[in-house]
Amino acid sequence: MPIGLTHVIILSTALFFIGVYGFFTRRNLITILMSIELMLNSVNINFVAFNKYLYPQNIDGIFFSIFIITIAAAEAAVAIAIIINLYRSHNSIDVEEANEMKY
């Protein structure tokens, strides 16, 4: 069967849920950030796949991906800043320790 949209979509879904699993499971904030990056990448794959296989006359999907990458970069930077700030106050980046929002 030739590789079609469905294959790529399934790949990106699998990658997304790998990221979700990592997000739920990891205790270190930086590894959580890494899982988020995986999720964003899977979304990127989705966009370009839809663009290539369903609407090849447009290039909108590519632009979505470009902007997502840009914003992901900015967001990763802000997240690192927060992590550093949190590290300063708690002296640890274990997410179990940051539970001041508890009842």
């Binding site: 790949l11 990658l15 790998i18 699993y21 499971t25 590894t31």
Partner: peptide, 9 residues
Amino acid sequence: ILGTGIMAV
């Protein structure tokens, strides 16, 4: 991709 992803998490 999936293999390295799983290893990463």
